[in-house]
Amino acid sequence: MTRVYDLAHGRAGDKGHAVNISVIAYDEAGFERLKRALTPEAVMERFKVVADGPVRRYELPKLRALNFIVDHIKGGGVTASLGQDLHGKSLSFLLLGMELPENF
C-alpha cells in the first residue's frame, strides 16, 4: 500500500471558501505516479466529506509539484467557519493520507 505521504510532502493554505494544498514529490518517478493518480476527480472523492468542490489542479513540473484548489469547504465562506480548523490548514494531511491504486 502506497500513500501520497510516501511519495510527497505538502502544505495547505486558505483563501476564503477555498483551500489550496500543495503536493511536492520527492523524486521524478513519484511525480509521474502522482500526476496519474491524483486527478481532480480522485481528489474530489477524497475531499467530499469536507468540501463541495470542485477541485482544480495545477502542475509545476520544475518543482515536481501539484497544486490543488479545493473549493467550497463545508461551513466555510464569508463568515469564519465553526470548525475546529477554521482555515482548513490541517487538510494537507487528509490528502497526504490518501492511498494510491497499486500498479498505477
Binding site: 493554505g13 477555498a18 518543482l63
Partner: peptide, 28 residues
C-alpha cells in the same frame, strides 16, 4: 517550495497590488 505554493491558487496569476505574479517557471 512549500512556502512558495502556500495560499497560492492559479500559479500563473497571483494577484498583488504591484503585479500579477506568474511562478510557473520558478526554481530553487
Amino acid at each position: 517550495t512549500e512556502q512558495l505554493l502556500y495560499e497560492l491558487h492559479d500559479p500563473t496569476a497571483y494577484i498583488t497590488p504591484d503585479c500579477v505574479l506568474d511562478i510557473t517557471d520558478v526554481d530553487f
